[in-house]
Design a protein around this nucleic acid. Sequence first.
RNA 1: GCGCGAGUGGCGGAAUUGGUAGACGCUGCAGACUUAAAAUCUGUUGAGGUAAAACUCGUGAGGGUUCAAGUCCCUCCUCGCGCACCA
Length: 830
Amino acid sequence: MKRYDPSKIEAKWQKIWQNEKPYEAVDFDDARPKIYLAEMFPYPSAAGLHVGHVRNFTIVDVLTRFYGQLGYNVMRPFGYDTFGLPAENYAIKTGTAPQAVTTENIANFRNQAQRLGYAIDWSREISSSDPEYYRWTQWIFARLFERGLAYQKESDQWWCPVDKTVLANEQVEAGKCWRCGAEVEKKTMKQWFFKITAYADELLDNLDDLDWPDKIKTMQRNWIGKSVGAEIDFVIANEAKQSSGTTAGSLRVARDDGEIITRDDAIITVFTTRPDTIFGATFMVLAPEHHLVKQITTDQQRQKVNQYVEQTQKKSDIERQENKQKTGVFTGAYAINPATNEKIPIWVADYVLANYGEGAIMAVPAHDERDYEFAQKFNLPIIEVIKPQLSKTDLKNSIWTGEGIMVNSMQFDNQNSGTAREKIVKWLSKQGIGREKVNYRMRDWLISRQRYWGTPIPIAYDSKGQPHLIPDNQLPVLLPGVEDYKPDDSGRSALAKADDWPKVTIDGQEMTRETDTMDGYADSSWYLLRYADPHNTKRAFDAKKIDFWNPVDIYAGADHAVAHLLYVRFWTKFFADEGLIGFREPVKKLIYHGYVNAPDGQKMSKSKGNVIDPLDIIDNGYGADTLRTYEMFMGPMDQDVAWDIASVGGVFRFLNRIWNLTQDFIAQPNDKVDNELRRAQHKTVKKVTGDIKRLSLNTAIAALMEYLNTLAKNPKRINRENIEVLLKLLAPFAPHMANELFEQLGNKTVIDNAGWPEYDEKLTEDEQTTIAVQVNGKLRGEIKTARDASKTEVKTAALELENVQKFTDGKTIAKTIYVPNKIINLVPTD
RNA sequence: GCGCGAGUGGCGGAAUUGGUAGACGCUGCAGACUUAAAAUCUGUUGAGGUAAAACUCGUGAGGGUUCAAGUCCCUCCUCGCGCACCA
């Protein structure tokens, strides 16, 4: 008898798959349904595949093979996210050119992916640092530029002092760089942005219809952070000379110190989501960076205010976030509350953020917790304008921030705050001092990176510093080889140091190239389209091919909940608006799986020395089939799981038993149909099919184990069909073994083409069913009956059970609940 | 603080629609084979209880709805993740 030796059979089948290319997708094949599956393409690190990749790729592989067996025209491509910081940092560390490192790492990744037996369409392999790819990333930049969706702006940006580049908001996590963890700094620089905010509403609204995990959708909603409210103008009041009045067109107001300021400077606009509470606005607060702070501050308060502003500017954002104690200073100035016409003081405090809304608020301490805290601390008046429709006991110590009935609000009294809100906005807008306003927390996507290893931004500047697109026919703007690509503190990438490269002639004009490169997320925002037409040299992609394959049916990943998955949605919407594609969402179903952690539950990391190398597992004799099956079996897909080598052994034993069982059958074949095994077989087909469809892969494998246990108990009664069905169901998880044994059984076709087994619903049910017998809801016994047994029959049989009689003796049955084939519950009178 | 998840044996987990809690795997224990070990195979493995059964308890805690609750409702605790002064 042959022994199970994974190394032999896996090498054999991998070679066959490489030579015969059975997993290439067919464009425009209408005879079969199509399905497009993809994983988030990996950064090919020098360390090779890790167990997390294996989980990610195997999930997609199981589905690829499953749908393939079901007869689908499956596209499952593969690619590499090669541009970006990790590759460049690695190149710097090892003193090799990023180009060379990348080529080497791709070869390694490809080789390792093949050693795992993935059913990849290798004809569609792409990598983002390939000029044939980034040429089109540049082309897309140009289209965005033409529509005003790529623009330049000078502003404060997050700068990572370690990676020496600016970062997008999405790449700053709790004030730290997402890559290296260094605390980021503010730096004023002129940078390129993509105007993702133009799509804010659609990005938010379309989330509702996506078959994505709620967790991701919630994160994206929070990130977009839509707030519907109003802008309201407050006029700055003058204590001493109230009556300086207006002159034509502009309001002129005198300040305490006598200086006259014009209307533009005399208005503070605020954003609020609760205009209904305006009658309770008893003070105003400006962010320390607000442009009016200097002008309105009175001489008396000037020193204190300056000191406070200086102090907060010195603090990093982290420090500002850490200290939740309210601080602030009175400016000495007042504004008029337009609803009450009362004079209210204007304060400066860092709890108001400069970069959201107007950087100024009307403070309603009775109905906002932060304002309340501030008012308590500085003894500012609190006026209640909304009465909750609840008993007061609920709010003893806190203030009411919900809806309610308006009070102290003149003509709006006794109305519901929700309806009053709209009326107040109308009332204010009639007076020209208020308007509806929607604000978003999301900012535009900053894409400039002061690093070498990225897609060059296809822009050049004329002598006046005006940006011009590099014409399409001069694309790609090739990344030149340079000697020294290390980043520095100059705020410019290494490309600025490349001798002649920045010089370019466009339309006969001498210009200077942009030397920053694009954020790597730009590259990954359209690769799911390129897969459908990976070798097109005339355009980014052919609309007909996109139309055939895209959007992606199932996309699997474990990271990038906000950044990548928001950007790729943004670009898809842009492409649709450009008429390049016919859909507005890139991914129908998203699988967001958990991490594979070290045995102690900690994250695997080189520094902790707890990294499990998947290739070691293969080479130690377990083989790729065991590794793949184990990673699918270790727990539900969406959960984090800890590595457990003992369980790897359990899965190996499972496969080994299938091997031995099949060898025994080959030695002593049997043709007879055994009813019990046939039923077990059909039951298993139903269960495994259903489980794979609902992505419950761990229970699908458990069902295969159960089926194997049933077969192994009756080795003599197993027939060919029993075994072949087992192998077909196993094939997505352990394709090498399934193919090998299927062949050993004498089949001429490979198992991939042998179809997915079907089941007969009637055969998935036992002829006899076991019915649990309860008395008063407690289990007292079991009876076996025919499937179609009537309630009366079952009841009679149940009442005959000795153990049931013990609990029903001398009592009458008041109620009988019967769930066919499941349970009967007898409820006696007391 | 707010939002979203989750809490089930010694461990990972299962229970898809309110219907027999603990599938499947690991570990442990006992046995077979072996000079021995590994491998393999068989049995067993929630707690209490019993010679064996019966029976009692049991899905984070407490209450509720129901013939019936891991599952639904209320209150609370713990952990994880996300957001974090966004007006």
